[in-house]
């Protein structure tokens, strides 16, 4: 009974995930695309929670659906994007996209052996936040610290590419 319920929950989340992902790509207005992406994030969080990764699930919802997507919507608002300008119906592109996705799905089906059960790697028991923290500061210390450098470089890059140099300063520098 429990397995039936958990698989039912999984399929509900998975169907929603796929449906909203398609809507994200196919949506005409940027706002509805962004909102579909929010829904996608929430469903991913749901699936993570059914996998007992409660912390990751909550982070998924809070960080992506909460913070990042609000940023997206702000930007869409600031850029004043309206309906996408008339898009030509490119059947060849659409068909090749569908064929590509179908092919990938077929490979996944064969490669991962969908339907046959596969033993999962052992999941650490107990409080997952504590385990996560311990992993980050022991086994994955180096990549964790490197992420800080990555963020620094990303911040520098955003400022470099977007910040307008004031004319006076530019003239001074150019001399």
């Amino acid at each position: 009974m429990e397995s039936f319920v958990s698989s039912l929950v999984f399929w509900v989340f998975a169907t929603g995930l796929v449906a909203f992902s398609v809507l994200t790509v196919a949506g005409r207005s940027p706002v509805s695309s962004a909102m579909s992406l929010v829904a996608t994030m929430i469903f991913v969080g749901g699936i993570l929670i059914t996998l007992q990764a409660y912390f990751l699930g909550m982070m998924q919802v809070m960080v992506y659906a909460g913070a990042v997507m609000v940023l997206f919507l702000f930007i869409i608002m600031l850029l004043n994007l309206d309906q996408e300008s008339v898009r030509k119906k490119a059947w060849v592109k659409a068909l090749s996209g569908v064929a590509l996705c179908g092919g990938l799905f077929w490979i996944l089906l064969g490669g991962l052996g969908l339907g046959q059960s596969r033993p999962l790697p052992p999941v650490p028991q107990g409080s997952d936040i504590r385990d996560l923290g311990r992993l980050l500061f022991t086994e994955y210390l180096l990549p964790f610290e490197l992420t800080a450098v990555l963020l620094l470089v990303a911040i520098v890059g955003v400022i470099l590419l977007c910040h307008q140099v004031r004319d006076r300063a530019a003239k001074k520098g150019g001399a």
Partner: peptide, 16 residues
């Protein structure tokens, strides 16, 4: 993980 983060760091520098 280290490989992935390092490659991302390299790639982000390259984008800029």
């Amino acid at each position: 993980v280290t490989g992935f983060v390092s490659i991302e760091l390299l790639t982000v520098c390259s984008y800029i």
